[in-house]
Amino acid sequence: MLDVIIYGLLAGGVLSLVAVGLTLIFGIMDITNFAHGEFMMLGMLGTATVSISLGVSPYVAVLLVAIAGIVMGVVIHFVIIKQTLGKSLYVQVFATFGLSILLQSIATMIFGTKYIALDDPLASSRVNIFGTDVEAAKLIAFVVGIALVIGIWFWLNKTRQGREIRAVAQDTYAARVVGIRPGRAYVIIFTVGVVFAVIAGGLVVPSQIANAYSGTTFTLISFVIVVLGGFGSVPGALVGGLSIGLVQAFTGVYIGTQWQQASIFVIFVLVLLLRPQGLFGRKSGDSALVGGHE
């Protein structure tokens, strides 16, 4: 039982890291990003390839790949995402879906369709947590993942720049009035989201094989976490990610691994129907429905 909890939490830490980027893009930019998992996929394949071809540790490789991720994030933001800001939902869905196909195909062209596995002595060494034997890679991924999520929360809440960005999310118009440029906030948030997903990919690849199609699942799981935690909520993404990790671990052990996915999507639909604002989101008043505010 304890080992299942530990496995679940360890897996959940990385999921939080992927989802926190998606939730910020959602909450601050109001964009539904269907390509999010592809960034993670690129992080997985990129880290594995760099690590193998340069013969360096994946934990060094992931830093190089993350820097490439910054460039990719900025470019994609200006070329594609910026054009969809404020557009209808379907423009966003299909622009990012097109981007997802594009990134997948490019990855196929570069890396092929076969699975890449990575063998790193540090990553595959075992550590003992409360009597449970786990791969070091999983623990590293968990620790780094949680640290980054907490870091971004700290940055958004405790620094001036972070607070300005949150101001944009609350009221674009008012933010502009007091001299905050939403455009800058958007490029920062999108790039942070991309880089986090890339790093998450780099962190899981030492313990998990990957190919060009590994991203889709993570896109879907991230959506689940985002909805569970509430759109735009960083603590929500953290708790949501850990919960989903636990649910997957328990379903895998007690019901069967083939039902891991199904279980989280059933939870997803239930949360959406019963508490659409998520576990951490605030419910908006009914006056907004009628549009009358005295």
Binding site: F97, Q104, S105, I106, A107, M109
Partner: peptide
């Protein structure tokens, strides 16, 4: 992947 890349790009 090349034909799919074109498809994704054109869709976008």
């Amino acid at each position: 992947g090349l034909s799919n890349a074109f498809y994704g790009g054109l869709l976008l």
